[in-house]
Nucleic acid binder design. Structure first.
Length: 259
DNA sequence: ACGTTCCGACGTCAGCGAAT
DNA sequence: ATTCGCTGACGTCGGAACGT
């Protein structure tokens, strides 16, 4: 933990966007956020040193981590942190652990209570494209279709059938994990099937990339759900507090009225 | 101990939109 | 038109929890 924490105390820190202004924008969802001071933090290590000038609400002890090496830096209470580097993670240590990852936009304000989150996945904005996509029903996979048809594990098409102009054949394959696949085969002089090497390599590369993409996608999805859950918790607390406030104000009003 | 059910993670396919 | 990345859907697997 050799991170450098530098207290500026003003919003005019070098190259720092005005946190108050940003806080105001996030205050639409978090009107109770009070900025007390600004911490400019340079995370340690040679690795992607996440320079963080970041954000947080008062009276919360927080931890900032870089996404890559997960080294954390404890911050004193009562500071506002402005994150200027994407791919940083902020954990609060108060109550249940909360994690926010700053992804796409630098200079995005983040609050540790999860009311506002820079990740697009945490946005309340309606995404028409996504909504549209969600409305679309997906057609069944080839594997399912084959199963429904009572198909065998592998449907082999005789050499010569479905031969394309390029001299390749198309086979529908199922089995193993996941859905079916359409694979192109060539035939040699004996009429036996083989898969061209470059095609095999391309396929392996595509599968590898997709594997990693799927992993990342799941990670983001989990993060998003956590973010939503945090938000629910925060809003529930706010709601409770407002109800209490309303109640006490009512009582006060009634008292004064009777006097 | 065993079978069953549930759950989370994974790999793959398919389809979409964006980038080229 | 093609390529690429993202993500929903699907099937599979392994482990935990549970009932018998």
């Amino acid at each position: 933990m050799d991170g450098m924490v530098e207290e500026n105390g003003t919003s005019g820190a070098s190259g720092v966007t005005d946190p108050l202004a940003s806080a105001a924008s996030s205050a639409s969802t978090t009107p109770h956020v009070v900025v007390t001071s600004i911490v400019q933090l340079t995370l340690p290590t040679q690795a992607p040193s996440a320079q963080v000038q970041s954000v947080i609400q008062p009276n919360q002890q927080s931890v900032i981590q870089t996404a890559s090496n997960i080294q954390s830096v404890q911050l004193p209470k009562g500071n506002v942190i402005l994150v200027s580097k994407p791919s940083s993670v902020i954990h609060t240590t108060q109550g249940t652990l909360q994690t926010l990852q700053i992804k796409p936009e630098p200079n995005t304000l983040v609050s540790t209570q999860g009311q506002s989150c820079s990740d697009e996945s945490c946005s309340d904005d309606e995404n028409p494209k996504r909504n549209y996509r969600e409305m679309l029903t997906r057609r069944p996979s080839y594997r399912k279709i084959l199963n429904d048809l009572g198909g065998a594990e592998i449907a082999v098409i005789p050499a010569g059938a479905l031969q394309t102009e390029s001299g390749l054949h198309t086979l529908a394959v199922s089995g193993g994990t996941g859905g079916g696949a359409i694979v192109q085969y060539a035939t040699n002089q004996d009429g036996q099937f083989y898969v061209p090497e470059d095609q095999t390599r391309k396929r392996e590369l595509r599968l590898l990339k997709n594997r990693e993409a799927a992993r990342e996608c799941r990670r983001k999805k989990k993060e998003y759900i956590k973010c939503l859950e945090n938000r629910v918790a925060v809003l529930e607390n706010q709601n409770k507090a407002l109800i209490e406030e309303l109640k006490s104000l009512k009582e006060l009003y009634c008292q004064q009225k009777t006097e």
